[in-house]
Design a protein around this nucleic acid. Sequence first.
DNA 1: TAAAATTAGATTGCGCGCAATATGATTTTG
DNA 2: CAAAATCATATTGCGCGCAATCTAATTTTA
Lengths: 163, 163
Amino acid sequence: MSDKRDEAETNDIPAGLLALDQQLCFAVYAAAHALNRTYKPLLDPYGLTYPQYIVLMTLWEEDGRTVKALGATLGLDSGTLSPLLKRLEAAGFIHRARDRSDERQVLVTLTDKGRAMRHEALSIRMEIGKATGCSVEALTALTAELQTLTRRLETGEAHDDAA
Amino acid sequence: MSDKRDEAETNDIPAGLLALDQQLCFAVYAAAHALNRTYKPLLDPYGLTYPQYIVLMTLWEEDGRTVKALGATLGLDSGTLSPLLKRLEAAGFIHRARDRSDERQVLVTLTDKGRAMRHEALSIRMEIGKATGCSVEALTALTAELQTLTRRLETGEAHDDAA
DNA sequence: TAAAATTAGATTGCGCGCAATATGATTTTG
DNA sequence: CAAAATCATATTGCGCGCAATCTAATTTTA
């Protein structure tokens, strides 16, 4: 109860440590939202959301995957994917069908419309590239750092030279 | 209708361009989720969600702000903040009160519990630092790059040397 | 082979995040 | 001063994201 100053720091909590942590987690949080907002007007004309677009991108890489395989790639479970895929199917981008050889599985395949969307994606990509305003090198570096961060957070592997 | 190969690339769409764009937006997307998942078990004991924790952090920086001021800092509107703050108040972390001098505004202030939570946050910060496994320099650099990206996406200022 | 365990998806409930709208309070205009 | 415009916040609706639960299909095991 000895703290009366609310700004910058309080007692034994170093402001720098607080700030860095705050900045990192908030920076990722804010960047994700900013990207989402940038994509929104580009995807709206097609009736797609950003997560739906990401699912289409993974299908462009490899079509005909199961829900589980998609979830493994995207880090999402069926609670998120089932309704999302249902909407993508209703919009005509994909087709879902139970696997004949294992009726538990659902195979997700692109429709002609889903494949055609890949061509539209070219202009979206260019718009995003312009919006980031960053060089290819900067974006590549940033991507790599984020991937490293994500991998470490997911695997729990430490390096113990952090703050 | 001339594309029959679904893998890697199709016709005139260069695979590299697709891949970089896909990697960047997905990297931010995945990192945000990974951070969220890392925070979750640390915040669960306090009954806090990650966005609620972020709101508390901004209040630790400067207490007694209006909903609008919080929204400006966090990039969130009242549609998100109103119910979130309602839950934070129900949980006893903050107090909301109409501004006497301008009844349109609602002032958000920390309670003793909300201020005390800042001390608990120290161990959370250390856990997150360990989980990232990155050096302070790496995290600082990553944060700066993300802030640049976010600023450019939000302001729409281009640099026109992107892909 | 029958029972138990595992697996893949779907469903439900809750908390964001955001657009659209609604409600009061304040300020601006006429 | 009264009507109109603006402003701050709240509410509603929809789509994620995730935990928990449910169902049906397959595999394991006894």
